[in-house]
Nucleic acid binder design. Sequence first.
DNA 1: CGATTCCATGGAAACGATTCCACGACGTCG
DNA 2: CGACGTCGTGGAATCGTTTCCATGGAATCG
Lengths: 341, 341
Amino acid sequence: MTGPSITIKDVAALAGVSPATASRVLSGNPATSAESRQKVAAAVAELDFHPNAQARALRSTRTNVIGLLLSDVRNPFFADLAHAAEQAALAEGLVTLLGNANESIPQQDRYLDTFISQRVDGVIAAPQGEGSSSLHALLERDIPTVFVDRTVDGVDVPSVTTDSDSGIRQAVEHLARQGHERVGYIAGPQSTSTGRDRLKSFSRAAREFGLSTDPALTYIGDFQSASGSAGAHHLLGLAQPPTALLAADSPMAVGALATLNRKGLRIGHDMALIAFDDIEWFSLLDPPLTVISNDVEAMGRTAVRLLLEVIDGHKPESVVLPSELVVRASSGTPDPSLGQP
Amino acid sequence: MTGPSITIKDVAALAGVSPATASRVLSGNPATSAESRQKVAAAVAELDFHPNAQARALRSTRTNVIGLLLSDVRNPFFADLAHAAEQAALAEGLVTLLGNANESIPQQDRYLDTFISQRVDGVIAAPQGEGSSSLHALLERDIPTVFVDRTVDGVDVPSVTTDSDSGIRQAVEHLARQGHERVGYIAGPQSTSTGRDRLKSFSRAAREFGLSTDPALTYIGDFQSASGSAGAHHLLGLAQPPTALLAADSPMAVGALATLNRKGLRIGHDMALIAFDDIEWFSLLDPPLTVISNDVEAMGRTAVRLLLEVIDGHKPESVVLPSELVVRASSGTPDPSLGQP
DNA sequence: CGATTCCATGGAAACGATTCCACGACGTCG
DNA sequence: CGACGTCGTGGAATCGTTTCCATGGAATCG
């Protein structure tokens, strides 16, 4: 079908040098004469030579490929994260192999196995559940790994996560100041570190700011929008329903919003709503959504930086990025006249 | 750092067979005895052996990796498409290398070069602009390629695209029936086939259904949300502003929505709005958005199927998927009493 | 019962790059 | 003026797998 592809030998022959010299020129080895460099470059251009990455990786054990394992690309948070990490990696000359665990442990394992077989230089993962078998295989092989967004208990790997606590405290304080006493919390799955941490932060802050600690006000979702709808539905049906809702991620906030719309309740008026994670169009809703915002771009960038350090044999400190409340109109100011200046 | 990794020789030695036999077992070659199969399988499990994909690909020229080149992962349409294609590929035993051209031709070229170097088995691309140099390098090498969503004029490659025309005709007809006469169109960039096709369809349908063909009613955007905002702003400022807006993709619809909100205009009431591409939360807006919907999942699946056929040496027919109007409340029924049954 | 086919197997070449090692030419220093 | 370090270069080994080819034993057939 395809003719025999051009190899470095063809380049060397055309340039009138040995394959060894051609290789040195291509990999930027300083032990080359200006003349060779020039001739090899000309030959490469002439033949439109693209070195075979497999052969290169086989010999040199560097692939310049990193694996990025996410739980769901369709979640805008992870899409943004993927974008940020990919751009940061590209700037370092690394190509990203994206794996989508799709909220499934077997699929996560499948991708991790692929990463191992592809001999990626490192892995950035937002891990699912409690440490799968392949995750351990990864670490046993000393494949450089960092966690992003989530961590796994008992697994000592550098990570970059969000300090959910500060943002949630601010949100709870904000709601308390507005006079809310019963705040419904739509939590993430307790099998993820973020799901657990955010719930803990919420409970603590609720106690601290004197909100109701009624356990019925907490609904455990799964970070997907359908569970947000279900959660809102459940909370609104309580004998003493909440006057405000806080959702632990954006898809669940979207789901809750759908339920509110269906019931004819207007956010910021009949019911306050705050979402964790900021999404571009949240500010475009009417009224715009109050959110707990975190710097996804920084998270992706930092994850790549940490991974590079691990690859270089260091053991970097984990990074915790701040989150902060961005107040918009959905969180129900009692007196609308107190608007922006 | 890491000890010498285990190779197929170690497996063979432990199993008491030759590397050749071990290889045959691993690749499912039928010329193996049950006994060898059993012994090799045991050795693989014992050593937790993961074959080196580089060496394998180097020798066999199959990598089981496909490249997927998109213009923007953060656009929900492409995120869904990536997800669909990835899942379909995975079901066929192929791993997806995702490249994000990020609306930039140099970055598209960079990823295509990487795909070539990685010797991917095939490429699925939503091409940018008018055929970059690397795109031609790809085709000259006879690397199996299919286009998805978009095509490039003069490049004869199988593709899977959406028949924008039917959906747009339905939308225009729908608006005309509602009594709209001046419909503003926020178009995509004319450097993409989808941008051009959809504009042509709109113009033709507008003529056909007796809408105004005033050229001022068309604003050319770039498929990103900011241009949607700008487009809406421009159209609303016309001496004779439109009574309905049609946006050629979802981010631009979001941008237009932002502008409408800012001006205090309610969709479905003061201004009809229809978006091309359906996004989960569009139906959750208040009022829900009327959209032209296309089956993204089928598009991803079909792209993988076409690619597999090209890899097998066939020349499959291009596929055009239907689009259809999904009427919701944003497209302004004059008489609200004519609701659902 | 001898000849032919079939089948599982092992040895060795091959894939396309990198890199170790040796080598010759050159400049420098004692 | 001879010894030595430096520098660019080429030959050859190497990475870990697949696959071609040859081989020997079992099974089948006339």
